[in-house]
């Protein structure tokens, strides 16, 4: 006589998780899924973006190299141009610093034409010291008048009669300083 086993397992094969853990699981599931989708989307976006940008950068780098080569091929022209710019800046300053001294000679001639003029000296501050000898006091007065006229015309400034000597022969020796307007 055979005996048949009649044992029945009544214990549930699936363990029930606590409700809190189930809720956290659902939340984690959604968050994880969301993070995966977002990272895929952003990865795709930035991946494509960086690829396009890298291609653009490579193309620009090639263009840059080509331009550098082009400029290097005309380096002699560049050197000449650079020298020209530098030298012309100097020339411009030099030309500005050149004063029209012939105007000063005109003023000397206007104030005391030879033989009244004895000497004239222009120093580095553009101050002119003029020594003249007139045959008479009237001539000296005329000369002073001419200086006043030039001062009024603003051709000279700061005119000063430094000394005046009257000789026994009636000749008058004058030393006058002024600054010609250049």
């Amino acid at each position: 006589m055979s005996t048949q086993s009649s044992n029945i397992n009544l214990i549930s094969t699936k363990t029930e998780l606590p409700e809190q853990l189930v809720a956290i699981t659902k939340y984690l599931h959604r968050a994880g899924l969301g993070a995966v989708l977002i990272s895929l989307a952003l990865g795709l976006f930035f991946g494509v973006g960086v690829t396009v940008l890298k291609l653009r950068a490579t193309s620009l780098a090639k263009e840059n190299d080509a331009l550098v080569a082009r400029i290097k091929s005309v380096s002699s022209k560049e050197a000449m141009y650079a020298v020209l710019v530098k030298q012309s800046a100097v020339a411009q300053k030099v030309l500005v610093s050149i004063k029209p001294w012939e105007a000063v000679v005109d003023e000397i001639n206007a104030i005391a034409p030879p033989p009244i003029l004895l000497s004239a000296t222009v120093n580095e501050k553009q101050e002119l010291s003029l020594t003249a000898q007139t045959p008479s006091v009237e001539e000296a007065a005329l000369m002073v008048e001419r200086i006043s006229g030039l001062t009024t015309q603003k051709k000279i400034r700061n005119a000063v009669l430094e000394s005046l000597e009257l000789g026994i022969d009636g000749k008058v020796k004058l030393v006058i300083t002024f600054v010609p307007t250049l």
Partner: peptide, 15 residues
């Protein structure tokens, strides 16, 4: 369920 959720989170945030 929880293992899959955690794995998804790790993959997503790691990515």
């Amino acid at each position: 369920e929880i293992i899959i959720a955690v794995a998804l989170c790790m993959a997503g945030f790691g990515g």
